[in-house]
Every structure is written in structure tokens, then in C-alpha cells.
């Protein structure tokens, strides 16, 4: 397989990554090489093989539905790029 400039731009958009125009050919080459390495998996017969999501095949643990976290808004917002009146600020989304 081979990924081109359009593919890289689409992937970068999906990943919400701004990438330099000049870097696109290098990304296309590297991603192509990576997926060509991955390609060999297609030759493996995996019919009837259960995918392995957890090395120990453990199940999700459940806990009682009780409040365990105290509100630490001020502590957490102390490291935020921009806040106002206890909320995180981003550029205006709705006109």
C-alpha cells in the first residue's frame, strides 16, 4: 500500500494535528513504511481466534455507586490555559 498527500492530510485532520506542509511527504513515506510492515499480518490465518483485549482476560471490576471524588475544580483549573468564573474558556463556538 501507499499513502499520499491527501491521505496524510485527511489523517492529520482526523487526529486534529496541524502539520507542516513541507513535512507531508516524509509523513507519507513513514506511514506507508509502517503499514507495509503491518501488512504481513494479513497473511496470518486468524479465523476463530478470539481477539485479546487484556493480557489476563480480566473483566471490568465494578464498585458501589458512591461518590468517591471530592470537587477539586480550583486545583485542576489552576493549571488550565484559560478559565473564567470556574469554566474553561475556548474560542467562541456558537454565534
Amino acid at each position: 500500500m501507499s499513502l499520499d498527500k491527501t491521505d496524510v492530510e485527511k489523517i492529520a485532520h482526523l487526529a486534529r494535528l496541524a502539520i507542516d506542509e513541507q513535512a507531508i511527504p516524509a509523513y507519507a513515506k513513514d506511514l506507508t513504511n509502517i503499514f507495509n510492515l503491518v501488512e504481513q499480518l494479513t497473511t496470518v490465518d486468524t479465523a476463530d481466534i478470539t481477539p485479546m483485549a487484556h493480557p489476563l482476560d480480566a473483566n471490568q471490576r465494578l464498585r458501589a455507586d458512591e461518590v468517591t471524588e471530592a470537587n477539586q475544580r480550583e486545583l485542576f483549573q489552576a493549571i488550565a490555559p484559560k478559565t473564567e468564573a470556574g469554566i474553561y474558556l475556548v474560542p467562541q463556538v456558537i454565534e
Binding site: L41, T42, I49, P51, M52
Partner: peptide
């Protein structure tokens, strides 16, 4: 084609 396949191969390795 990718993630599911890889998780299957992962079991073979295990």
C-alpha cells in the same frame, strides 16, 4: 483489518 486483526495475532503470540 488492523486493530481487530492485531488483537487476534496478539493472542497467537501469547
Amino acid at each position: 483489518a488492523y486493530y481487530l486483526k492485531a488483537q487476534q495475532c496478539r493472542r497467537l503470540i501469547s
